[in-house]
Amino acid sequence: MTSTRSATLFALALLAPALLYILVIVAYPLFDTVVLSFTNAALRPTYDFVGWANYQRIFSAGNFTEVILRTLIWTFFSVSIKMIIGMAGAVLLNAAIPGQTLFRVLTMPPWIVPMAIGIFMWGWMYNGQFGMISGLLQNFGIISKPWPILAAGDSAFWATIVTDVWIGVPMVTIYFLAAMQSIPRDLYEAAWTDGAGRFYRFRRITVPMMLPAIITMSLLSLIATFNSFDIIYILTRGGPSGSTTTMIIDTYNTAMGSRKYGEGAARAVVICIFVTLFCLVYFRAVRKLQQGEAK
């Protein structure tokens, strides 16, 4: 009895630093945000409990559902493109070609370069007067006058996705490459002996065996992309006229731009709910995969 008790205490003692860290860095701010979302805290020093008023306001204002929808679309395209390019990149990097290591190294810069620098670089490339993209398109005669990509809603929306993909692809590629390399060579040799072609082997061996990695990466990427702030903020600050305002930008603009802390907190709580849902899906998927393996 005493030995089990001391073992429990010992385990708790070992966990204490991590628990303390989570309490201070995660649990308390989260709790405080939820509390804040029920108040009218703002630049003027008020802190009155207002019930569901903030939530009622943001959902009745009209543009919030639009922001949610835009965030989901933005995230969907960004994650899907990252997964597709990441997988294609992993397949190419896994091929036995001369200079393989060099190519693997060359995939890294977008990930290694400090994010803000990379984003500024894209900002200049998107520039209508001096930007490389507009310049090249004019040189090739595809467009006739300068094209300020970030100045129009549609093109700005896609431009932010392209930059997000550029930054996110290396990690996906490397992760997929590692998963691909952990598949035993024998399986491919056996399939090749049985007459399975390249595409057939990819479809029936590579993809199913990488499924845990694909699901994990998709959901982790989904959460990161959903919360992606710096790319949009540096490139467009959510504009022009809100066309790149995702939930996280919207929250920031409300809380820090308009100094409506209470309402901003309410918007942040909605983000939390979405991310929690994503996490639940992730854990369910992982559990299902594990059960599938045991079956």
């Binding site: 056996a190 399939a191 002996t193």
Partner: peptide, 28 residues
């Protein structure tokens, strides 16, 4: 290629596909 040689090979590691049933492994 192997498939046109009229051979079948059994590997040291067995090389079974872990995500497929025994049936699908044999049927591959």
């Amino acid at each position: 290629p192997p498939v046109k040689r009229g051979i079948a090979m059994v590997f040291q590691s067995y090389a079974l596909y872990p995500h497929m049933s025994v049936y699908e492994n044999i049927a591959f």
